[in-house]
Structures are given as C-alpha cells and as structure tokens.
Design a protein around this nucleic acid. Sequence first.
DNA 1: AATAAAAGTTACTTAGAGGTAACTTTTTTG
DNA 2: CAAAAAAGTTACCTCTAAGTAACTTTTATT
Lengths: 195, 195
Amino acid sequence: MKTTKNEILNTALSVFSQKGYEGALLRDISDSLGITKAALYKHFKSKEALWNTLIDYVEQYYSEHINSLSNIPIPDNWDKLKEISLKQIEFTLHDETVKRVRKLLTIEQYRNERMSALATKHFITDIESRFTKAFEKMIEKGVLKCTNPELLAFQYTAPITMLIHLCDRESEKEAEIMKKIEAHIEQFTREYKTK
Amino acid sequence: MKTTKNEILNTALSVFSQKGYEGALLRDISDSLGITKAALYKHFKSKEALWNTLIDYVEQYYSEHINSLSNIPIPDNWDKLKEISLKQIEFTLHDETVKRVRKLLTIEQYRNERMSALATKHFITDIESRFTKAFEKMIEKGVLKCTNPELLAFQYTAPITMLIHLCDRESEKEAEIMKKIEAHIEQFTREYKTK
DNA sequence: AATAAAAGTTACTTAGAGGTAACTTTTTTG
DNA sequence: CAAAAAAGTTACCTCTAAGTAACTTTTATT
C-alpha cells in the first residue's frame, strides 16, 4: 500500500518537476503510471493534497539524503576536499530524484513559504554548513589560511551550485562545466592553501 | 498605439513573473489593466503569442540595460570595483522590471531553449564577461595578482548572484544579505590584492 | 465635422481539467 | 474460502479559462 503511494509520488515528482504545479495535469501522472485519473483519487483527495504530500516526501527524501552525507567523513585536507566535492557533484548531477527535486525547487520556489524555505535550505544553508565544518577542521590542522570558514564555505560552494544549475539547463555542456568546476576548486586550493 | 502594447507587456511581465505561464490567466492581466479579457485579443492573437512577444520584449529590455552598463567605466582598482559592484547590486535588487525578469527567467528557464539560453546569458555569461574585463584591466595595472581573469570573474560574481536570488525569495533578510555580499567582496579583495 | 481605424465591450462557444458516483476487479486477512 | 478493504474502471458533472463574434466607443486623420 505504501508502495503504490510512493510510486505515485515518484511519478508526480517527475511530472511536477518538468511542468510545474499549474502545468502538470493529473492525467499526465495517471497516464505515466498506467492507471486512470480517477484512481489517483483513491490515494489523494485532490491535486493540492497530492502536491502537499509530495513536498513532505521531498523534504523527507532530502533530509535522509543529507543524513547519509553526515556519515561520510568530513574532509580535513585539500585532496580529500576535492575528492569528496567531485564525488558529491557527480552524484548530484546524475541522480534522477535529486535532479528532479532541484528543478522542482527552482521553478516553484516562489509558490509559498514552504517551498521558499526549502529552496534556501537546499541550495545554500545545508551545503554551506557541511563545508564550514570541513574548513574549520582544515584551519585547525593548519592546512588552510586562517580566515572566516563560513564565508569561505559559501565562496567555495556558491560557484559550484551555480554551475550545477547551468548543467540542469544545458546538460550537453556537462564536460565543459565539470572542467570549470575543477578549475574553480584548484584555484581555490592554490589561493587558500598554507605553504 | 505602441504605448498600449507596452502597458500590456509590462502588466504581463508582472503577472507571468508571479504566477508563471500556466498559472497566469489572461483575466489577471486584463483586470490589472482595467480592461476586459477580450480587449487583449485586439493586440495579441493568443496567450502564446503574448508570451512570445513578452520574451522578445524582455530580451530587448535586457540588452538595452546591458548596453547602458557598458557606458559605465570599467573599474580598474579595488575601491571602484566595490563601489560599482554595490551600486549595480542595489539597482538589480530594487528595480521592479529587472526583478520581474529575473523571477520569470528563474521559474520558466526549463520551458524552452530560448528561456534556457536567456537564463544562462542573464545569470552567468554577461555578468562574467563584464567583470572579466575589469579584472583584466586590474591585472594590467598590477593591482590584482596575476591569475585567470575569467575564472576569477566567475568566482567573484557567482556568490553575489546566488545571494541576489536568495534576496528575491526572502526579501526581509536584505540587510543581512547585503552584509554577506560586502563580506564576500572584502574577503575577495583581501585575498587577491597585490601588496 | 466626417469617417475609418483602433480599442473596447458584452455575450457567447468550446475544450479540457479537476473532481465524483456507481460499479468491478484485485488483494488481504480472519 | 469468504468477505471486506483497497485499487481500479467507466461515465459522468462542473467550472473555468481560452478564444470568438457582433456590436459600441474612442481616437486619429483628412
């Protein structure tokens, strides 16, 4: 029973992330599931209810995803920082669900307070706090010039986030974009590494 | 005659940027203009036609805006860079049309090739190229450590762009966000300034 | 001032999306 | 296995947004 609901939510995520709330039709979702539109109403009492449940689902998926990241050791040197960054970017760019969540947040971020808060959390706060920890550790270890680790984390992650969004729009340029990301990481390392 | 059409386009920009293409109703636009929906059809043969004209209009407005920027002298030292950056950010954050264009591009960037290209141009390419020129000049003058000016321009502008988007979502945090922007600029200056 | 074009109105059609009711099939479970 | 709950179907209703036609008012133009 939970499986059916989950299948619906996955399909809904796919459709909503492509067409947005207003553009998405319940028929798109039901067709894509191979059931009739009316069958959806056995699980959700309205389009709005489905939407709200989807946001719950996204929030939950996302926090699980973030929690799983906190199991990964925090990098404490430049090589590990690069390695973990690239691995994370790779995942983020190719995992279908994560991609859909990102698109959905992007196109629906002005719909309501909840979407807006989720977008900020997803695109800025959480990433920043993860890398702040890394930079704090690196300062402690003396491999990073002593500065404000939070600001540095933002300066490190914001360009990457921008390029990930660019890749969502123009996926054919992925190789080029990955090169730019690497160049950014290398320049950042060169500049802030202690000698 | 051109004025009426322009008024319609301005109103359409306002409505579409708040509700997106699918969510926006022709009634929203006509009501907001104080005319009937049918009157709109004297100027545009369909919603889609109005939309396409709006994108033309946005493209044109935008390129004029960019051209007017090219009259401003390119900064060639750190103080001027900061000054011009902040002035530009101030304008960008408060000019209603620019704000609407930004929101529209954000929420409709996946609709078609045209919107996607415009988003990349608006959010990345054009800003980058402007600041690349500034950094090239500053390297020439010897006030900026010799590095890749294009990469640097991206690293300088991307965090600012991210914070502008944040401000669009959470305008009540503007003061805080402006502080963060200044901190970013100062940190960047401190790091790349030749001594 | 006369008249033609532009801009607007009212009243309508049409299509399609959300949503419901009544019935059937499938799945669970005592 | 029987029955009840879940999941699905068909056929419908309703509402509303896009779009049109016929008519009126406003605005330019000679």
